[in-house]
């Protein structure tokens, strides 16, 4: 029977001890612990959110990078193509110019050669004339030593001169 009868003393002390420790624990333990737990949970949540956002941003950046890379590749190809074209053009031009130059040089050389040829011809002509004169003189002088021949020749010349009066005056 005694076991199921509450005793005032123990009841009183239970209330006192329980409430005292409740008040102390609330201040010393529960409030700091619960606050720390809440703070940590909030922080974890915030960090998870931040991580998700960062990942999203990262993906965006990666996509952007890829796009930029693609663009860069395209640009590179374009530039290369242009460069090749330019190169070909320059080569062509150079070749043409070279050809033109060669042509010009050939022409000039030809002209020069022509000129030299001409002057050589003139000189040769002159030389030949002089030599002819010389030879003719030599021949004449030898022929004319013979009186008879000399006379016949002079006569021939005179007859020729008569036939061609212009030459005498000239």
């Amino acid at each position: 029977m005694e076991i199921i009868l509450p005793k005032f003393g123990l009841f009183f002390w239970t209330v006192v001890i329980f409430l005292t420790f409740f008040l102390i624990l609330r201040k010393v333990a529960w409030k700091p612990i619960l606050r720390a737990l809440q703070e940590r949970e909030q922080e974890i949540e915030a960090r998870l959110q931040a991580a998700a956002e960062a990942q999203k941003k990262m993906e965006q950046i990666t996509q952007q990078n890829e796009k930029m890379l693609q663009e860069a590749l395209l640009a590179k190809e374009k530039i290369l193509k242009e460069a090749q074209e330019l190169k070909a053009q320059i080569e062509n031009q150079a070749r043409q110019e070279a050809r033109l130059l060669a042509e010009k040089m050939r022409k000039e050389t030809l002209q020069e050669v022509e000129q030299i040829k001409k002057s050589l011809k003139d000189e040769i002509k002159k030389e030949v004339v002089e030599m002819s004169f010389y030879v003719a003189e030599k021949i004449l002088s030898r022929e004319l030593r013979n009186k008879k021949t000399h006379d016949s020749y002079v006569e021939a010349l005179i007859s020729d001169l008569q036939l061609n009066p212009k030459r005498v005056t000239g």
């Binding site: 076991i3 199921i4 009868l5 509450p6 005793k7 005032f8 003393g9 123990l10 009841f11 009183f12 239970t14 209330v15 329980f18």
Partner: peptide
């Protein structure tokens, strides 16, 4: 102790 549980 029933006194203790009674108090709580």
């Amino acid at each position: 102790n029933i006194s203790v549980t009674a108090a709580l």
